[in-house]
Write a protein that binds this DNA or RNA. Structure first.
Lengths: 237, 237
DNA sequence: GCACCGGACCAATCTGTACTTGGTTCAGTT
DNA sequence: AACTGAACCAAGTACAGATTGGTCCGGTGC
Protein backbone atom coordinates (compact mmCIF):
# COMPACT_ATOMS: atom_id res chain seq x y z
CA UNK A 1 0.00 0.00 0.00
CA UNK A 2 0.98 3.63 0.30
CA UNK A 3 2.06 3.15 3.87
CA UNK A 4 5.56 4.19 2.98
CA UNK A 5 4.56 7.58 1.62
CA UNK A 6 2.60 8.91 4.56
CA UNK A 7 3.81 7.52 7.84
CA UNK A 8 1.27 7.74 10.63
CA UNK A 9 -1.52 8.38 8.21
CA UNK A 10 -3.20 5.02 8.13
CA UNK A 11 -5.04 5.16 11.42
CA UNK A 12 -6.64 8.56 10.80
CA UNK A 13 -8.05 7.56 7.45
CA UNK A 14 -9.26 4.28 8.91
CA UNK A 15 -10.83 6.19 11.77
CA UNK A 16 -12.70 8.39 9.34
CA UNK A 17 -14.04 5.48 7.36
CA UNK A 18 -15.05 3.50 10.44
CA UNK A 19 -16.79 6.52 11.85
CA UNK A 20 -18.97 6.50 8.77
CA UNK A 21 -20.20 3.05 9.74
CA UNK A 22 -21.64 4.34 12.99
CA UNK A 23 -24.59 6.21 11.54
CA UNK A 24 -27.88 4.58 12.48
CA UNK A 25 -28.90 3.95 8.87
CA UNK A 26 -25.84 1.86 8.06
CA UNK A 27 -25.93 -0.16 11.28
CA UNK A 28 -27.41 -3.63 11.56
CA UNK A 29 -30.14 -4.07 14.13
CA UNK A 30 -27.76 -5.49 16.69
CA UNK A 31 -25.43 -2.51 16.13
CA UNK A 32 -22.52 -4.77 15.52
CA UNK A 33 -19.54 -3.68 13.47
CA UNK A 34 -17.45 -5.98 11.26
CA UNK A 35 -14.66 -7.77 13.05
CA UNK A 36 -11.28 -6.15 13.33
CA UNK A 37 -9.84 -8.61 10.86
CA UNK A 38 -12.64 -7.86 8.42
CA UNK A 39 -12.17 -4.13 8.77
CA UNK A 40 -8.46 -4.58 8.28
CA UNK A 41 -9.10 -6.30 4.98
CA UNK A 42 -11.86 -3.94 3.84
CA UNK A 43 -9.91 -0.78 4.52
CA UNK A 44 -6.59 -2.14 3.34
CA UNK A 45 -4.74 -1.30 6.53
CA UNK A 46 -3.22 -3.49 9.15
CA UNK A 47 -5.23 -4.73 12.05
CA UNK A 48 -3.01 -2.69 14.33
CA UNK A 49 -4.14 0.50 12.61
CA UNK A 50 -7.76 -0.57 12.80
CA UNK A 51 -7.37 -1.15 16.49
CA UNK A 52 -5.88 2.28 17.03
CA UNK A 53 -8.84 3.83 15.28
CA UNK A 54 -11.23 1.77 17.38
CA UNK A 55 -9.37 2.82 20.51
CA UNK A 56 -10.24 6.42 19.71
CA UNK A 57 -13.90 5.63 19.12
CA UNK A 58 -14.02 3.67 22.34
CA UNK A 59 -12.48 6.53 24.29
CA UNK A 60 -15.14 8.78 22.81
CA UNK A 61 -17.79 6.38 24.10
CA UNK A 62 -19.11 5.73 20.61
CA UNK A 63 -18.33 2.04 20.53
CA UNK A 64 -17.76 -0.71 23.03
CA UNK A 65 -15.91 -3.96 22.56
CA UNK A 66 -16.08 -7.32 24.20
CA UNK A 67 -13.60 -10.08 23.58
CA UNK A 68 -15.28 -13.05 21.99
CA UNK A 69 -18.44 -11.10 21.23
CA UNK A 70 -17.48 -8.28 18.89
CA UNK A 71 -17.43 -4.52 18.53
CA UNK A 72 -20.68 -2.60 18.93
CA UNK A 73 -21.83 0.91 18.26
CA UNK A 74 -22.90 2.59 21.46
CA UNK A 75 -22.92 0.80 24.81
CA UNK A 76 -22.48 -2.94 25.14
CA UNK A 77 -25.49 -5.21 24.81
CA UNK A 78 -25.92 -7.48 27.83
CA UNK A 79 -23.97 -10.71 27.64
CA UNK A 80 -25.44 -14.15 27.31
CA UNK A 81 -26.70 -16.12 30.26
CA UNK A 82 -24.08 -18.84 30.03
CA UNK A 83 -21.27 -16.31 30.04
CA UNK A 84 -22.11 -14.53 33.25
CA UNK A 85 -22.44 -17.70 35.29
CA UNK A 86 -18.69 -18.02 35.65
CA UNK A 87 -18.04 -14.60 37.07
CA UNK A 88 -20.38 -15.24 39.94
CA UNK A 89 -18.05 -17.57 41.78
CA UNK A 90 -16.22 -14.45 42.91
CA UNK A 91 -19.16 -13.22 44.93
CA UNK A 92 -18.57 -12.81 48.62
CA UNK A 93 -20.99 -13.55 51.38
CA UNK A 94 -21.90 -9.96 52.15
CA UNK A 95 -22.56 -9.32 48.50
CA UNK A 96 -25.02 -12.16 48.32
CA UNK A 97 -26.76 -11.05 51.48
CA UNK A 98 -26.99 -7.55 50.08
CA UNK A 99 -28.88 -8.86 47.08
CA UNK A 100 -31.05 -11.16 49.13
CA UNK A 101 -32.01 -8.33 51.46
CA UNK A 102 -33.05 -6.36 48.43
CA UNK A 103 -35.12 -8.92 46.59
CA UNK A 104 -36.55 -11.32 49.14
CA UNK A 105 -38.59 -8.90 51.22
CA UNK A 106 -40.42 -7.64 48.13
CA UNK A 107 -40.87 -11.25 47.06
CA UNK A 108 -42.51 -12.03 50.38
CA UNK A 109 -44.71 -8.99 49.94
CA UNK A 110 -45.85 -10.19 46.53
CA UNK A 111 -46.32 -13.71 47.87
CA UNK A 112 -48.64 -12.36 50.55
CA UNK A 113 -50.69 -10.71 47.84
CA UNK A 114 -50.94 -13.72 45.58
CA UNK A 115 -50.47 -16.95 47.49
CA UNK A 116 -53.51 -19.16 47.99
CA UNK A 117 -54.30 -21.55 50.80
CA UNK A 118 -52.46 -24.43 49.16
CA UNK A 119 -49.32 -22.35 48.87
CA UNK A 120 -49.51 -21.43 52.51
CA UNK A 121 -49.83 -25.09 53.33
CA UNK A 122 -46.75 -25.93 51.31
CA UNK A 123 -44.78 -23.22 53.07
CA UNK A 124 -45.91 -24.47 56.42
CA UNK A 125 -44.83 -28.00 55.60
CA UNK A 126 -41.41 -26.77 54.56
CA UNK A 127 -40.75 -24.82 57.70
CA UNK A 128 -41.68 -27.92 59.65
CA UNK A 129 -39.36 -30.03 57.52
CA UNK A 130 -36.55 -27.57 58.09
CA UNK A 131 -37.17 -27.35 61.79
CA UNK A 132 -37.42 -31.10 62.28
CA UNK A 133 -34.33 -31.96 60.27
CA UNK A 134 -31.64 -33.49 62.40
CA UNK A 135 -28.67 -32.93 60.13
CA UNK A 136 -27.20 -29.74 58.73
CA UNK A 137 -27.85 -30.78 55.16
CA UNK A 138 -31.51 -31.24 55.80
CA UNK A 139 -31.85 -27.81 57.37
CA UNK A 140 -29.99 -26.14 54.54
CA UNK A 141 -32.10 -27.98 52.03
CA UNK A 142 -35.51 -27.21 53.39
CA UNK A 143 -34.62 -23.69 54.33
CA UNK A 144 -33.54 -23.13 50.75
CA UNK A 145 -36.74 -24.72 49.47
CA UNK A 146 -38.76 -22.52 51.79
CA UNK A 147 -37.32 -19.34 50.41
CA UNK A 148 -37.70 -20.56 46.87
CA UNK A 149 -41.33 -21.44 47.37
CA UNK A 150 -41.99 -17.91 48.51
CA UNK A 151 -40.39 -16.75 45.29
CA UNK A 152 -42.71 -19.08 43.38
CA UNK A 153 -45.74 -17.72 45.19
CA UNK A 154 -44.88 -14.22 44.05
CA UNK A 155 -46.21 -15.27 40.67
CA UNK A 156 -43.60 -13.50 38.59
CA UNK A 157 -41.55 -15.71 36.27
CA UNK A 158 -38.79 -13.20 35.83
CA UNK A 159 -38.54 -12.56 39.53
CA UNK A 160 -38.29 -16.28 40.11
CA UNK A 161 -35.45 -16.48 37.60
CA UNK A 162 -33.70 -13.69 39.47
CA UNK A 163 -34.11 -15.58 42.71
CA UNK A 164 -32.72 -18.75 41.16
CA UNK A 165 -29.71 -16.86 39.90
CA UNK A 166 -28.93 -15.69 43.40
CA UNK A 167 -29.78 -19.03 44.92
CA UNK A 168 -27.39 -20.86 42.63
CA UNK A 169 -24.53 -18.66 43.74
CA UNK A 170 -25.54 -19.13 47.33
CA UNK A 171 -25.45 -22.89 47.00
CA UNK A 172 -22.34 -23.14 44.89
CA UNK A 173 -20.21 -21.19 47.28
CA UNK A 174 -18.77 -23.02 50.22
CA UNK A 175 -20.48 -21.13 52.97
CA UNK A 176 -22.50 -24.05 54.13
CA UNK A 177 -20.10 -24.66 56.95
CA UNK A 178 -20.06 -21.00 57.83
CA UNK A 179 -23.82 -20.76 57.92
CA UNK A 180 -24.09 -23.96 59.86
CA UNK A 181 -21.76 -22.70 62.56
CA UNK A 182 -23.84 -19.54 62.69
CA UNK A 183 -26.83 -21.69 63.54
CA UNK A 184 -26.43 -22.10 67.21
CA UNK A 185 -29.18 -23.72 69.16
CA UNK A 186 -30.71 -20.42 70.18
CA UNK A 187 -30.42 -19.06 66.66
CA UNK A 188 -32.24 -22.07 65.31
CA UNK A 189 -35.31 -21.49 67.40
CA UNK A 190 -35.14 -17.80 66.57
CA UNK A 191 -35.16 -18.61 62.86
CA UNK A 192 -37.97 -21.08 63.32
CA UNK A 193 -40.08 -18.37 64.86
CA UNK A 194 -39.20 -15.96 62.09
CA UNK A 195 -40.11 -18.53 59.47
CA UNK A 196 -43.45 -19.02 61.13
CA UNK A 197 -44.02 -15.29 61.22
CA UNK A 198 -43.39 -15.08 57.49
CA UNK A 199 -45.76 -17.91 56.72
CA UNK A 200 -48.38 -16.47 59.02
CA UNK A 201 -48.17 -13.06 57.35
CA UNK A 202 -48.55 -14.64 53.94
CA UNK A 203 -51.49 -16.71 55.09
CA UNK A 204 -53.21 -13.62 56.47
CA UNK A 205 -52.43 -11.74 53.25
CA UNK A 206 -50.58 -9.03 55.08
CA UNK A 207 -47.98 -7.83 52.55
CA UNK A 208 -46.34 -5.23 54.76
CA UNK A 209 -45.85 -7.62 57.60
CA UNK A 210 -44.58 -10.35 55.29
CA UNK A 211 -42.00 -8.00 53.85
CA UNK A 212 -40.87 -6.84 57.26
CA UNK A 213 -40.77 -10.36 58.62
CA UNK A 214 -38.55 -11.44 55.76
CA UNK A 215 -36.33 -8.44 56.21
CA UNK A 216 -36.00 -9.18 59.90
CA UNK A 217 -35.16 -12.80 59.20
CA UNK A 218 -32.45 -12.07 56.65
CA UNK A 219 -30.98 -9.31 58.79
CA UNK A 220 -30.75 -11.69 61.71
CA UNK A 221 -29.08 -14.29 59.53
CA UNK A 222 -26.58 -11.76 58.27
CA UNK A 223 -25.82 -10.39 61.69
CA UNK A 224 -25.30 -13.85 63.02
CA UNK A 225 -22.77 -14.68 60.33
CA UNK A 226 -21.05 -11.33 60.70
CA UNK A 227 -20.64 -11.95 64.40
CA UNK A 228 -19.22 -15.35 63.57
CA UNK A 229 -16.73 -13.90 61.14
CA UNK A 230 -15.51 -11.42 63.71
CA UNK A 231 -14.92 -14.00 66.40
CA UNK A 232 -13.91 -16.90 64.15
CA UNK A 233 -10.48 -17.42 62.73
CA UNK A 234 -11.30 -17.88 59.06
CA UNK A 235 -11.65 -15.05 56.67
CA UNK A 236 -14.47 -15.32 54.21
CA UNK A 237 -13.47 -14.88 50.60
CA UNK B 1 -39.03 -62.15 36.45
CA UNK B 2 -41.63 -63.21 38.94
CA UNK B 3 -44.05 -60.56 37.79
CA UNK B 4 -46.62 -63.17 36.97
CA UNK B 5 -46.79 -64.58 40.47
CA UNK B 6 -47.59 -61.40 42.41
CA UNK B 7 -49.58 -58.98 40.36
CA UNK B 8 -49.48 -55.43 41.67
CA UNK B 9 -46.54 -56.20 43.85
CA UNK B 10 -43.76 -54.74 41.80
CA UNK B 11 -44.28 -51.09 42.52
CA UNK B 12 -44.51 -51.53 46.31
CA UNK B 13 -41.27 -53.46 46.52
CA UNK B 14 -39.60 -51.00 44.18
CA UNK B 15 -40.90 -48.18 46.35
CA UNK B 16 -39.38 -49.74 49.41
CA UNK B 17 -36.02 -50.22 47.82
CA UNK B 18 -35.94 -46.72 46.34
CA UNK B 19 -36.89 -45.27 49.69
CA UNK B 20 -33.76 -46.84 51.08
CA UNK B 21 -31.74 -44.73 48.67
CA UNK B 22 -33.02 -41.54 50.21
CA UNK B 23 -31.12 -41.70 53.44
CA UNK B 24 -28.47 -39.00 53.67
CA UNK B 25 -25.60 -41.47 54.00
CA UNK B 26 -26.32 -43.20 50.73
CA UNK B 27 -26.93 -40.04 48.74
CA UNK B 28 -24.35 -38.39 46.49
CA UNK B 29 -23.54 -34.79 47.28
CA UNK B 30 -25.85 -33.48 44.58
CA UNK B 31 -28.66 -35.67 45.98
CA UNK B 32 -29.31 -37.18 42.61
CA UNK B 33 -30.88 -40.60 42.23
CA UNK B 34 -30.07 -43.03 39.42
CA UNK B 35 -32.07 -42.49 36.27
CA UNK B 36 -35.39 -44.24 35.88
CA UNK B 37 -33.91 -46.56 33.30
CA UNK B 38 -31.06 -47.41 35.63
CA UNK B 39 -33.40 -48.06 38.54
CA UNK B 40 -35.54 -50.20 36.30
CA UNK B 41 -32.53 -52.37 35.48
CA UNK B 42 -31.15 -52.43 39.03
CA UNK B 43 -34.40 -53.41 40.66
CA UNK B 44 -35.47 -55.79 37.93
CA UNK B 45 -38.84 -54.16 37.36
CA UNK B 46 -40.21 -52.26 34.46
CA UNK B 47 -39.69 -48.56 34.14
CA UNK B 48 -43.41 -48.09 34.50
CA UNK B 49 -43.29 -49.62 37.98
CA UNK B 50 -40.32 -47.49 38.91
CA UNK B 51 -42.22 -44.43 37.84
CA UNK B 52 -45.22 -45.36 39.95
CA UNK B 53 -42.98 -45.70 42.96
CA UNK B 54 -41.38 -42.35 42.22
CA UNK B 55 -44.84 -40.82 41.86
CA UNK B 56 -45.54 -41.76 45.44
CA UNK B 57 -42.29 -40.33 46.71
CA UNK B 58 -42.91 -37.16 44.77
CA UNK B 59 -46.39 -36.80 46.23
CA UNK B 60 -44.85 -37.18 49.67
CA UNK B 61 -42.48 -34.35 48.86
CA UNK B 62 -39.44 -36.58 49.34
CA UNK B 63 -38.16 -36.30 45.78
CA UNK B 64 -38.52 -33.92 42.88
CA UNK B 65 -38.03 -34.59 39.21
CA UNK B 66 -37.11 -32.44 36.28
CA UNK B 67 -37.19 -33.67 32.73
CA UNK B 68 -33.74 -33.61 31.23
CA UNK B 69 -32.06 -33.09 34.56
CA UNK B 70 -32.89 -36.10 36.70
CA UNK B 71 -34.56 -37.16 39.93
CA UNK B 72 -33.42 -35.61 43.18
CA UNK B 73 -33.94 -36.30 46.84
CA UNK B 74 -35.68 -33.39 48.49
CA UNK B 75 -36.51 -30.19 46.67
CA UNK B 76 -35.17 -29.40 43.23
CA UNK B 77 -31.78 -27.77 42.86
CA UNK B 78 -31.92 -24.55 40.83
CA UNK B 79 -31.61 -25.08 37.10
CA UNK B 80 -28.77 -23.95 34.92
CA UNK B 81 -28.42 -20.39 33.71
CA UNK B 82 -28.76 -21.21 30.05
CA UNK B 83 -31.91 -23.21 30.65
CA UNK B 84 -33.94 -20.52 32.32
CA UNK B 85 -33.26 -17.95 29.66
CA UNK B 86 -35.86 -19.43 27.37
CA UNK B 87 -38.75 -19.23 29.78
CA UNK B 88 -38.29 -15.51 30.16
CA UNK B 89 -39.77 -14.62 26.80
CA UNK B 90 -43.15 -15.13 28.44
CA UNK B 91 -42.65 -12.21 30.78
CA UNK B 92 -45.14 -9.40 30.50
CA UNK B 93 -44.42 -5.73 30.81
CA UNK B 94 -45.89 -5.28 34.25
CA UNK B 95 -43.90 -8.22 35.51
CA UNK B 96 -40.68 -6.68 34.35
CA UNK B 97 -41.55 -3.32 35.86
CA UNK B 98 -42.36 -5.07 39.11
CA UNK B 99 -38.86 -6.48 39.24
CA UNK B 100 -37.21 -3.27 38.14
CA UNK B 101 -39.05 -1.32 40.84
CA UNK B 102 -37.73 -3.80 43.35
CA UNK B 103 -34.10 -3.90 42.38
CA UNK B 104 -33.19 -0.59 40.78
CA UNK B 105 -33.95 1.75 43.68
CA UNK B 106 -31.67 -0.26 46.00
CA UNK B 107 -29.08 -0.30 43.22
CA UNK B 108 -29.20 3.47 43.05
CA UNK B 109 -28.86 3.58 46.81
CA UNK B 110 -25.73 1.44 46.70
CA UNK B 111 -24.39 3.46 43.80
CA UNK B 112 -24.72 6.62 45.85
CA UNK B 113 -22.69 4.97 48.58
CA UNK B 114 -19.92 3.70 46.34
CA UNK B 115 -19.65 5.70 43.14
CA UNK B 116 -16.66 7.99 42.75
CA UNK B 117 -16.37 11.22 40.81
CA UNK B 118 -15.49 9.46 37.57
CA UNK B 119 -18.60 7.33 37.80
CA UNK B 120 -20.75 10.38 38.32
CA UNK B 121 -19.16 11.91 35.27
CA UNK B 122 -19.96 8.86 33.18
CA UNK B 123 -23.55 8.92 34.34
CA UNK B 124 -23.84 12.57 33.53
CA UNK B 125 -22.50 12.00 30.02
CA UNK B 126 -25.01 9.24 29.46
CA UNK B 127 -28.02 11.26 30.48
CA UNK B 128 -26.87 13.95 28.10
CA UNK B 129 -26.42 11.41 25.33
CA UNK B 130 -29.90 10.10 25.97
CA UNK B 131 -31.42 13.53 26.12
CA UNK B 132 -29.72 14.76 22.98
CA UNK B 133 -30.51 11.72 20.87
CA UNK B 134 -32.78 12.54 17.99
CA UNK B 135 -34.04 9.05 17.19
CA UNK B 136 -35.91 6.56 19.32
CA UNK B 137 -33.13 3.99 19.08
CA UNK B 138 -30.59 6.39 20.50
CA UNK B 139 -32.80 7.26 23.44
CA UNK B 140 -33.51 3.62 24.21
CA UNK B 141 -29.83 2.83 23.94
CA UNK B 142 -28.45 5.51 26.20
CA UNK B 143 -31.26 5.21 28.68
CA UNK B 144 -30.50 1.52 28.98
CA UNK B 145 -26.79 2.25 29.35
CA UNK B 146 -27.56 4.82 32.03
CA UNK B 147 -29.43 2.34 34.16
CA UNK B 148 -26.79 -0.29 33.66
CA UNK B 149 -24.00 2.05 34.68
CA UNK B 150 -25.81 2.69 37.93
CA UNK B 151 -25.88 -1.05 38.45
CA UNK B 152 -22.15 -1.15 37.81
CA UNK B 153 -21.54 1.62 40.32
CA UNK B 154 -23.27 -0.42 42.98
CA UNK B 155 -20.11 -2.50 43.09
CA UNK B 156 -21.77 -5.86 43.52
CA UNK B 157 -21.01 -8.43 40.82
CA UNK B 158 -23.98 -10.59 41.62
CA UNK B 159 -26.33 -7.66 41.69
CA UNK B 160 -25.01 -6.59 38.31
CA UNK B 161 -25.69 -10.05 36.95
CA UNK B 162 -29.22 -9.81 38.27
CA UNK B 163 -29.65 -6.49 36.55
CA UNK B 164 -28.35 -7.92 33.28
CA UNK B 165 -30.78 -10.79 33.50
CA UNK B 166 -33.68 -8.37 33.77
CA UNK B 167 -32.23 -6.05 31.18
CA UNK B 168 -31.90 -8.82 28.63
CA UNK B 169 -35.56 -9.66 28.96
CA UNK B 170 -36.44 -6.02 28.72
CA UNK B 171 -34.54 -5.63 25.47
CA UNK B 172 -35.58 -8.89 23.90
CA UNK B 173 -39.24 -8.21 24.24
CA UNK B 174 -40.87 -6.04 21.64
CA UNK B 175 -41.96 -3.20 23.85
CA UNK B 176 -39.69 -0.69 22.27
CA UNK B 177 -42.55 0.69 20.26
CA UNK B 178 -44.77 0.75 23.32
CA UNK B 179 -42.23 2.58 25.40
CA UNK B 180 -41.48 4.97 22.62
CA UNK B 181 -45.11 5.92 22.25
CA UNK B 182 -45.21 6.46 26.00
CA UNK B 183 -42.46 9.01 25.59
CA UNK B 184 -44.37 12.05 24.66
CA UNK B 185 -42.62 15.35 24.47
CA UNK B 186 -43.63 16.34 27.96
CA UNK B 187 -42.73 12.93 29.33
CA UNK B 188 -39.27 13.19 27.81
CA UNK B 189 -38.41 16.35 29.66
CA UNK B 190 -39.87 14.86 32.82
CA UNK B 191 -37.61 11.83 32.49
CA UNK B 192 -34.63 14.04 31.74
CA UNK B 193 -35.20 15.89 34.97
CA UNK B 194 -35.60 12.64 36.87
CA UNK B 195 -32.38 11.30 35.39
CA UNK B 196 -30.58 14.41 36.48
CA UNK B 197 -32.03 14.10 39.96
CA UNK B 198 -30.70 10.55 40.19
CA UNK B 199 -27.24 11.55 39.03
CA UNK B 200 -27.21 14.51 41.36
CA UNK B 201 -28.16 12.36 44.34
CA UNK B 202 -25.41 9.90 43.51
CA UNK B 203 -22.89 12.67 43.10
CA UNK B 204 -23.83 14.10 46.47
CA UNK B 205 -23.65 10.65 48.01
CA UNK B 206 -27.21 10.83 49.25
CA UNK B 207 -28.38 7.18 49.20
CA UNK B 208 -31.90 7.81 50.41
CA UNK B 209 -32.55 10.45 47.82
CA UNK B 210 -31.00 8.38 45.07
CA UNK B 211 -33.25 5.47 45.93
CA UNK B 212 -36.35 7.62 46.01
CA UNK B 213 -35.41 9.39 42.81
CA UNK B 214 -35.04 6.08 41.04
CA UNK B 215 -38.31 4.85 42.45
CA UNK B 216 -40.05 7.98 41.30
CA UNK B 217 -38.56 7.64 37.84
CA UNK B 218 -39.57 4.02 37.35
CA UNK B 219 -43.02 4.66 38.76
CA UNK B 220 -43.53 7.49 36.32
CA UNK B 221 -42.38 5.29 33.46
CA UNK B 222 -44.74 2.53 34.48
CA UNK B 223 -47.68 4.86 34.94
CA UNK B 224 -47.06 6.38 31.57
CA UNK B 225 -47.13 3.00 29.86
CA UNK B 226 -50.16 1.90 31.84
CA UNK B 227 -52.03 4.99 30.74
CA UNK B 228 -50.99 4.22 27.18
CA UNK B 229 -52.26 0.68 27.41
CA UNK B 230 -55.62 1.85 28.67
CA UNK B 231 -56.16 4.33 25.90
CA UNK B 232 -54.33 2.49 23.13
CA UNK B 233 -55.79 -0.31 21.07
CA UNK B 234 -53.15 -2.96 21.48
CA UNK B 235 -53.06 -5.36 24.30
CA UNK B 236 -49.68 -6.04 25.79
CA UNK B 237 -48.75 -9.73 26.03
C1' DG C 1 15.02 4.60 15.44
C1' DC C 2 10.27 4.77 13.66
C1' DA C 3 5.97 3.31 11.83
C1' DC C 4 3.78 -0.24 9.87
C1' DC C 5 2.78 -5.09 8.46
C1' DG C 6 2.00 -9.98 8.99
C1' DG C 7 1.48 -13.63 11.77
C1' DA C 8 0.93 -16.26 15.93
C1' DC C 9 -1.01 -17.06 20.29
C1' DC C 10 -4.25 -16.30 24.25
C1' DA C 11 -8.68 -15.77 26.57
C1' DA C 12 -13.52 -14.76 26.49
C1' DT C 13 -17.62 -15.67 24.02
C1' DC C 14 -20.84 -17.73 21.00
C1' DT C 15 -22.85 -21.57 18.46
C1' DG C 16 -24.28 -25.86 17.28
C1' DT C 17 -24.45 -30.72 18.01
C1' DA C 18 -24.95 -34.88 20.29
C1' DC C 19 -26.32 -37.01 24.43
C1' DT C 20 -28.98 -37.66 28.63
C1' DT C 21 -33.25 -37.77 31.12
C1' DG C 22 -38.01 -37.59 32.64
C1' DG C 23 -42.85 -37.73 30.28
C1' DT C 24 -45.97 -40.18 27.23
C1' DT C 25 -47.93 -43.49 24.28
C1' DC C 26 -48.78 -47.98 22.31
C1' DA C 27 -48.69 -52.70 20.92
C1' DG C 28 -47.59 -57.20 22.93
C1' DT C 29 -47.73 -60.78 26.74
C1' DT C 30 -49.26 -63.47 30.41
C1' DA D 1 -56.19 -56.51 34.18
C1' DA D 2 -51.54 -55.62 35.01
C1' DC D 3 -47.07 -55.61 33.62
C1' DT D 4 -43.34 -55.31 29.99
C1' DG D 5 -40.62 -53.49 26.40
C1' DA D 6 -39.92 -50.31 23.05
C1' DA D 7 -40.33 -46.18 20.66
C1' DC D 8 -40.86 -41.34 20.56
C1' DC D 9 -41.07 -36.47 22.50
C1' DA D 10 -39.49 -32.43 25.00
C1' DA D 11 -36.61 -30.35 28.40
C1' DG D 12 -31.99 -30.00 29.95
C1' DT D 13 -27.04 -30.87 29.84
C1' DA D 14 -22.30 -31.14 28.25
C1' DC D 15 -18.79 -30.81 25.13
C1' DA D 16 -16.18 -29.30 21.08
C1' DG D 17 -15.22 -26.07 17.54
C1' DA D 18 -15.36 -21.66 15.56
C1' DT D 19 -15.30 -16.68 16.16
C1' DT D 20 -13.51 -12.49 18.16
C1' DG D 21 -11.06 -8.92 20.68
C1' DG D 22 -6.39 -8.51 23.37
C1' DT D 23 -1.44 -9.06 23.22
C1' DC D 24 3.08 -9.89 21.68
C1' DC D 25 7.03 -10.62 18.53
C1' DG D 26 9.91 -10.58 14.52
C1' DG D 27 10.32 -8.57 9.87
C1' DT D 28 10.39 -4.61 6.42
C1' DG D 29 11.22 -0.19 4.48
C1' DC D 30 12.56 4.23 5.28
Amino acid sequence: MDATGRPGDNSPTALERIRALLHPETLPSDRRLPTERQLSEDLGVSRRSVRRALDVLEAEGRISRRRGAGTFAGPCPPLNASAMSERLAESDFMGVMEVRLSIEPPLAELAALRADARDAERLDRMTKNAHHSQDADGRELWDSAFHRTIAECAGNELYLAVFDLVDRVRQNAEWRQLRERARTHSALSLYAGQHDAIVESIRRRDPERAREAMRTHLSALRESVVRMMETGADDVG
